[in-house]
Design a protein around this nucleic acid. Structure first.
Lengths: 369, 369
DNA sequence: CTGTTAGCGCCTTCAA
DNA sequence: TTGAAGGCGCTAACAG
C-alpha cells in the first residue's frame, strides 16, 4: 500500500477550490452549506478521476470515530461451531460501513488484555466480547462499558445491567424439545448428557443448565419426570456413544431421547445403529445446536438451532444503536426448531410431525436396514 | 471508548520533559539517542502511572504503518472447514503486534472491492486474499502487489510471479494416499469423488485435480490403474453415500477406497455400515482434509490433513518479511497423514500401519458388529 | 542529551 | 458561497 495516495488537498488543488470546500462536497454537505453546483460537480469529477479515497485514519484522528469495531472471542472465529456468530457480526458491520478487528484469546486472560488493548489503541468505536459456549464472564477492565457488548455470554453479577448481553434462549428450547416429543405421543423421555436433577450438568455450561431447566419444567407441567438421565461431563460423540450404550443395556425400546447437543446425538446414532436398531423406529431423538452434522446424519436429526448468525448481527446492531433505552439488558434470541426425521411416535409409529418434512424417499428407504 | 485518553503530551508534561523525549523513551530508542537514565525512568514511571497508551492511528498517520493487516476471504472465517486458516494468521499477527481486519465476500466481486477498499482506507500494511477451497483467482486490482498474498489460492496466469501464493501440497498427498494403501497390501483401489481420467473432476477444484494427478501418477509407477472411479460433482456426504452404494452393488469386497474428501468418506461409511459391512474389514478407506468429523467416525478415518493453521501462519509470515528474495513464488505446504483405523490389508488383514495408532481397546471392540 | 518546529490528512470553527 | 487557520496525537529533522 506504499504507492502515494491521493489526498483531499490534491483533489482540492486539481479542482481549483480549497480543501474545506472539497471536504464539504465529498461528505455530502455541499448542499446544506450552499456550495455552488459548479464547484460541487468539479470536485466530484476530479475526485473520481484521481480515484480519491479519504484516509479514514486521519478522519478518525480528527473526529474520534474510526468506523471500526473489535471482536474478541475465546475461540469463536476458528471453531467449527460458532463461525456464524462472526458472520452475523461481519455482515451487519460491513453493511453499515464498519470494519471488524478479530482477536482470539484461547481463554487466556492476559492475551485477552493484550488484544483488547491493541484494539483500543487503534481507536475502535466498540467492542464485542464473544464466547464460543454461552457462559458467565467478566467484562474486561478499563473500557467504557457503554461501548461493549457480550455475545453468547452473560455478565457477572457485578456487571449485570451495565452491559448488554446477547444469548440464545436455551430455556425455551428445552421446553420446546419436550413439547415436540409429547406431541409425537411420547411420555417416556430419556436424557442424554445431563440430569436428572437440575444441577446435574457439566461445569460452567449455561446452555446445559438452561436446557435442562426447560426440559424439567415442561415435563413437570405434564406431571412427568425424565424416564432416565445420564450426565456426561463432556459432550463429544464418544460420550454420547457410551451413554447410549448404557441406555440400550436397560432394554428399553420405542421411547424417546433428548440429547443435550448434536455431537452427543451423533454418538447415540452410532451406538443405536451398531446395535442393529433404528431411528426413529426404536428411538426418537431430539437434540440441540443444529451442528452441520445434524443434516448429514441418516435419518437427519431433529434439533433446535443455535441462532448464531442472529446473535452476531444483533450484537453489532446493539453496539451501533445511538439511543440506548434498554442498554444493559440480556437479550435472548429464540432457537428455531429444525424438524427432521429423527422423531416418530412411541414404538416408531408415524406422526404428523414426522411426516411434515420428509427426506427424499430413496434415501429414506435405506434408513432402517 | 469515549473517556479522555492520556496522550503523549500528558506524559511529557507530567514527567517534565518534552514530547520528543517522551516519545523516544517510550519507543525504546532512549538508549540509542542517549537520553539520561533519570529522565527515562521518570517518563516510564509516569506513563505507567497514567496508564498511557499510544494512539496507533496517529502514529500510523505519521509513519505510514498501522500495524494492521487485512484478511479478505470468500467465506473462510465462518466456514466449518477452514477456520484454522484464520487462526494461523491471527496468532502469527498478534505475536508480531499486528491486528487483523476480517472480511467475507461470499464470492461477490463488488463486495470484495468494497472490503478491500475499506481496508486500504484504513491504511492496512498488507492484505491476505484467502479462499475456502483452493482455486485460481485474480488479484484485486488497484493495490500494490508487493503487499498482497494469496492464501489457499493460486494467481491467474497474468499474475504468476508477481504475488506470493500459499497452498496445500495436494499432489503429494494424492501420491501418499496410494502409498498408504499399497503399503497395506492393496492393489485394487477404488476412487470415490473423481476419476478415472485426470480431467474427471468437479469444476474449479484445484484440490481435486491435483489429488487425482498424484493418485494416478503413483498408481502408474506401480503399473496400476484405479480399480474403478466415480466422479461426484459435489462432495457432500450424500454424494459419497450414493457413490459407495453404486460400488457395493458391483459386489467387490476386501478392497480399498480413496475418497476425495472426508465428507464423501462419511457418506461411504454410512452406505457400507448400512449394508452390514465393516471398515476396514470389507473396505479400507483413505481420505483427505482431516475434517473434525474424521476422528468422530467409527473406526476413525485415516486422512491427509489440510494444513490450515500452517497455511494461515505462513501467509502472515510472508507478508511481514521485509526482504523478499523469492517474492511471488507458490509455496506448497505438506498435508500430514493422520493414520487412524480405517485401513487394513486386503480382506481385512491387520497391518503394521493399522495397529500403529489404535483407539482405546473398549471402543475398538465395538467397531465391527 | 534535550527541546522546537513541522508536518501526516482530515475536519471544524471562524472570518471574509 | 468560499478560504485560512488550527489541531487531533504522534514522530522526524534539526537545532541547541
Amino acid at each position: 500500500m506504499k504507492s502515494k495516495r491521493v489526498t483531499l488537498a490534491d483533489v482540492a488543488a486539481a479542482a481549483g477550490v480549497s480543501r474545506t470546500t472539497a471536504s464539504l462536497v465529498l461528505s455530502d454537505r455541499g448542499d446544506e452549506l450552499r456550495i455552488s453546483e459548479a464547484a460541487q460537480q468539479r470536485v466530484r469529477r476530479v475526485a473520481a478521476e484521481l480515484a480519491y479515497r479519504p484516509n479514514i485514519l486521519s478522519s478518525a484522528l480528527r473526529r474520534g470515530s474510526s468506523r471500526t469495531i473489535g471482536f474478541v472471542s475465546d475461540t469463536v472465529a476458528t471453531s467449527q461451531l460458532a463461525g456464524d456468530l462472526i458472520k452475523g457480526a461481519l455482515e451487519h458491520a460491513h453493511r453499515n460501513g464498519y470494519m471488524l478487528f478479530i482477536g482470539e484469546t484461547e481463554g487466556a486472560p492476559d492475551e485477552e488484555r493484550r488484544l483488547v488493548q491493541g484494539m483500543i489503541d487503534r481507536q475502535v468505536d466498540g467492542l464485542i466480547i464473544a464466547s464460543m459456549f454461552t457462559r458467565v464472564r467478566a467484562v474486561p477492565a478499563g473500557i467504557d462499558p457503554r461501548s461493549v457488548v457480550l455475545l453468547n455470554a452473560l455478565p457477572e453479577d457485578s456487571a449485570v445491567g451495565t452491559v448488554p448481553s446477547i444469548v440464545p434462549d436455551e430455556y425455551s428450547a428445552g421446553r420446546a424439545a419436550v413439547e415436540v416429543l409429547r406431541a409425537a405421543g411420547h411420555s417416556r423421555i430419556h436424557l442424554l448428557g445431563a440430569g436428572p436433577g437440575p444441577d446435574d450438568v457439566p461445569v460452567q455450561t449455561v446452555a446445559g443448565s438452561e436446557r435442562l431447566r426447560g426440559i424439567l419444567d415442561a415435563l413437570a407441567e405434564d406431571g412427568l419426570e425424565p424416564a432416565s438421565a445420564r450426565l456426561c461431563s463432556v459432550w463429544l460423540p464418544e460420550d454420547g456413544w457410551a451413554a447410549a450404550r448404557s441406555l440400550l443395556e436397560t432394554g428399553v425400546r420405542g421411547e424417546a431421547i433428548i440429547t443435550f447437543n448434536d455431537r452427543l446425538a451423533f454418538g447415540a446414532y452410532q451406538a443405536i445403529q451398531e446395535a442393529g436398531l433404528s431411528i426413529p423406529g426404536d428411538f426418537s431423538i431430539v437434540s440441540f445446536d443444529d451442528h452441520q452434522l445434524a443434516s448429514w446424519l441418516r435419518p437427519r436429526l431433529t434439533t433446535f438451532a443455535l441462532p448464531h448468525y442472529e446473535l452476531g448481527a444483533l450484537a453489532l446492531q446493539v453496539l451501533l444503536e445511538d439511543d440506548a433505552p434498554d442498554w444493559g439488558t440480556v437479550r435472548r434470541v429464540p432457537m428455531p426448531l429444525r424438524m427432521r426425521e429423527s422423531v416418530a411416535g412411541p414404538g416408531g409409529a408415524p406422526t404428523g410431525a414426522g411426516r411434515r418434512s420428509a427426506a427424499s424417499p430413496s434415501r429414506e428407504a435405506a434408513v432402517s436396514p
